[in-house]
Design a protein around this nucleic acid. Structure first.
Lengths: 334, 334
DNA sequence: GGTATGCTTGCAACCGGTTGCATTACCAGT
DNA sequence: ACTGGTAATGCAACCGGTTGCAAGCATACC
């Protein structure tokens, strides 16, 4: 079917090694041989089989991406950055969708079979043990958006979710909100737990208490909307800290549909600063998570682990910041 | 590093062939041998190398997905469905991101090197020749969201964009709109061209004319917003047919920011029916494109082409329908 | 001219599986 | 017990590359 190295060698009148070497960077070939080979290859339309090469070199140039949040637009940015960053380095992404997967171990198995060079687990809703299982299998792994596990576990790239919770509490307190609620992401997610913990801590330090805490079933508009409706049917609050912009938009629409005005009757603070947060219909004040930095660093780290095995890579946390738009009233001065 | 077939064979006291056969469906192995092998494999933690298998069988079980629209949330659904559908069949996706790629030929080359079994090109903004180049390279290919090319070209799965344009015109006319405009997707996209052609045709048949046609630079909120602002600064219209929901939302916000009320002052008809179209802040009336059907059919067809080479597969077009929400006034009766 | 030096080049083994073919084992039938 | 037929097994070649090693070669230097 496809043209092989042997045919090119025959046509160019050289050995197979010569052909192989002209296609491997940094190998020793004379200019004369190289041009003969390149000519033959061009005429035959030859392109080397990465499969065969992988088998021989024990490197596939495949980096797995494990995700389970194909509903949330932030992941579009993740996919875009991830694929582009890899492409620039001559690597390719192998996608694993865990959204509807019952058995994650099955996916570990699959990626192992493809002999991926490394894996990036991009999710905060999977337990840390999942990423760990790649490490145990000897596969370089980075857990993006993860929580740093105590005791030298998996390399993590993400943010300090606890600090973000504190930051959120500060932002609401500074604006004079006093009966605040949380509509978090999925309760099981480490990111949710840490953000709530930080938020709760700062509120306690300020001598305030949290009126209500709800958890959206998943990172979606519908889940946020629903959680907010039940919240509002039971409690009265003047501000809400949401675990995600998408959830926040749902929550905002729930409040609006009950006739509440934003930010006069109720304030909203989102999380992520996805593109839609800037849309005029929402103009969401939110905490920006540097997705771009996280993904690029994840790729960088996993590549480093592949290239220099044994040399451990340090986890990295990036800073977040409050992006001010129109869903919170201004900071009260004095 | 990883456990190989040879080691398992040694441990189980059988030949390498025997091990190979217990791991290939439908091969002839006795129950006794099989259990011996499985035991040894389990104890050693063996999992067969798909790389080696690919080399021997000339099948990689890799299906490329070429996309260039990583900004638009519809593609989240595409990725989700695509990866899941493949996974269910024991196949894996290899993603190619053409968003910022200068030279598409480069990507064809890359996918060829990985010896993908087939390719799905999912975009309407690339010229038909692009998908064609896979065909010429002997790689089974399906062009999802494409335009059926005259003269036995690439197999296409999508919708009849022309008919959708007609449908859009009918919807606006039936509601009594008389000075309508189009804010299309990128002008070079075949889908845009066909929809506009259908729209224009029906308007002409009805003896009406189109007040203005604009093209958004890309499928984004910002592009839609911008196009709408320039449109409104020059013309007066009572309804707009948009090439995409995202563009439409941008256009709606542009209109609103000028104090216009929807649907009283101006009506909007979107395209795609993405999840966000149902959000209360927009409640977009739109034309539903059956993304799910398109992706599933694309995978099905490309798999068929892989399994039965030579047997040509027929292109498939799915029906669209108008989804009524709140951005168009009711159909005028009588 | 002889030889040390450093590139090129080809040979052949190897990567980890699959598979056609020949051989052996097994089982049933008489 | 013998035969015939089928199922199971092992051998060895092959998939398409890479790479250590040794031989070949040209150049430079004495």
């Amino acid at each position: 079917m496809a043209v092989t190295l042997k045919e090119v060698a025959a046509k160019a009148g050289v050995s197979r090694s010569a052909v192989s070497r002209t296609f491997t960077a940094g190998a020793s070939v004379s200019a004369k041989t190289r041009s003969k080979v390149e000519k033959a290859a061009r005429e035959l339309g030859y392109s080397p089989s990465l499969i065969a090469r992988s088998l021989a070199t024990n490197r596939t140039k495949l980096i797995g991406l494990v995700a389970n949040n194909f509903q949330n637009p932030v992941f579009l940015e993740v996919f875009d950055l991830y694929t582009r960053t890899l492409q620039e380095r001559g690597l390719r992404p192998l996608l694993v969708n865990l959204s509807h997967e019952t058995d994650p171990a099955h996916s570990v198995q699959m990626l192992k079979q493809y002999r991926v060079d490394g894996v990036v687990v991009a999710t905060s809703t999977l337990p840390p043990e999942f990423a760990r299982s790649f490490m145990d299998a000897g596969v370089p792994v980075v857990h993006a958006f993860g929580r740093i596990a105590p005791g030298a576990g998996v390399t993590v790239v993400g943010i300090d979710n606890r600090a973000c919770g504190v930051m959120a509490a500060d932002a609401l307190l500074a604006r004079g909100y006093r009966s605040v609620a949380v509509v978090g992401g999925p309760e099981g997610a480490t990111s949710t737990q840490d953000r709530v913990a930080g938020f709760r801590q700062r509120m306690a330090e300020a001598g305030e208490h949290i009126t209500d805490i709800r958890y959206a079933a998943n990172y979606s508009y519908g889940a946020g909307r629903e959680a907010m409706h039940t919240l509002l049917s039971e409690k009265t609050v003047d501000a809400v800290f949401c675990g995600d912009d998408l959830i926040c938009m749902g929550a905002m629409d729930a409040a609006r549909s009950r006739g509440m005005l934003i930010p006069d009757d109720i304030g909203f603070l989102g999380f992520n600063d996805m593109a839609m947060a800037g849309w005029e219909a929402y103009a969401l004040s939110t905490i920006r998570q540097p997705t771009r930095d996280i993904i690029m660093a994840s790729v960088e780290l996993v590549v480093a682990m592949v290239e220099r095995p044994g040399e451990p890579q340090r986890s990295r946390l990036f800073d977040c910041s409050v992006v001010e738009r129109k869903t919170l009233r201004p900071v009260s001065v004095g």
